[in-house]
Design a protein around this nucleic acid. Structure first.
Length: 260
DNA sequence: TTTCATGTTCAGCA
DNA sequence: GTGCTGAACATGAA
């Protein structure tokens, strides 16, 4: 379940569990998730080392194990990380770090759309991938400029990882709902005020979700996230939620709250 | 049995 | 080049 808030949660989870512990063994259960690195090279790079620090950019999570060596993870549509003791490995564990303490850290990724690999630095990786600035590390003026640099509908612009990194399908719907902007509204039709509202709601939605530690049921009842279903009742007005297909993804919005 | 799913990437088209 | 659509990737739930 990985958009920015979930990945941020995994980062904090790793910080709390897995730093400065010696990696006795690295186990690759599915080579499919390896990106640009062989199992052999990955094992050689990491075994005997310890994780030092973590950072996140958009939906990518980075963990250093020497000053210029970073392991990165991307979850795709499914997955998380799990830290546990003993031999009971979680289902769909694709890469496992065995610490000498007897604990393990597992990269869990059911659908195998996830990727892990190595890079010399998160910034280098981000520029190679064309990743934009992190959605929570962006000021209003740059947000406005970057959104305007992208034409077309506002929803795909929000989700474009080269414009800003971290927002996916679910949170883009939430941000647009709270900003009262229709997902098909063109970015060129948005004025400074619209973009400011969008920016403030983006920060609010993402930071509140980070705070609730991915427990969606703890998010306010006024949020769309609980009603992402065609013909569901809008949490704010009497309209019914509608489904729209935009850029190959299904989005949900309220035709009453979100006018064009 | 069919459709759909919190992502990314690529081909084809206007 | 830009934006949009559909498909592919792999697995499971409804």
């Amino acid at each position: 379940m990985p958009e920015l808030p979930e990945v941020q949660y995994y980062k904090e989870y790793i910080d709390a569990t897995s730093l400065r512990k010696k990696i006795k063994e690295l186990e690759v259960r599915s080579r499919k998730v390896l990106s640009g690195v062989s199992e052999k090279r990955l094992k050689r790079a990491l075994e005997g080392k310890s994780f030092l620090e973590t950072t996140r950019r958009g939906k990518y999570l980075f963990i250093s194990f020497s000053p210029e060596e970073w392991f990165y993870l991307h979850f795709g549509m499914t997955g998380d990380v799990r830290y546990y003791k003993g031999a009971e490995d979680p289902k769909h564990a694709r890469v496992l770090f065995r610490f000498s303490s007897g604990y393990s850290l597992a990269f869990v990724n059911q659908r195998l759309f996830g990727k892990v690999g190595l890079t010399r630095a998160p910034e280098i990786f981000a520029s190679e991938k064309g990743l934009g600035p992190d959605a929570l590390d962006l000021d209003l003026v740059s947000f406005q400029a970057r959104m305007r640099s992208k034409r077309g509908a506002v929803k795909p612009a929000l989700m474009d990882q080269s414009v800003l990194a971290g927002v996916g399908n679910i949170y883009s719907d939430e941000i647009l709902f709270q900003s009262r902007i229709h997902p098909r509204q063109l970015t060129t039709e948005l004025d400074d005020e619209d973009l400011k509202r969008l920016y403030l709601n983006l920060r609010k939605v993402l930071s509140k979700s980070v705070e609730k530690k991915t427990e969606l049921e703890k998010l306010p009842g006024s949020w769309l996230i609980h009603s992402r279903e065609d013909k569901a009742k809008c949490p704010r007005c009497d309209s019914r939620i509608e489904k729209v297909r935009i850029s190959g993804r299904n989005g949900y919005f309220c035709p009453g709250c979100q006018n064009r």
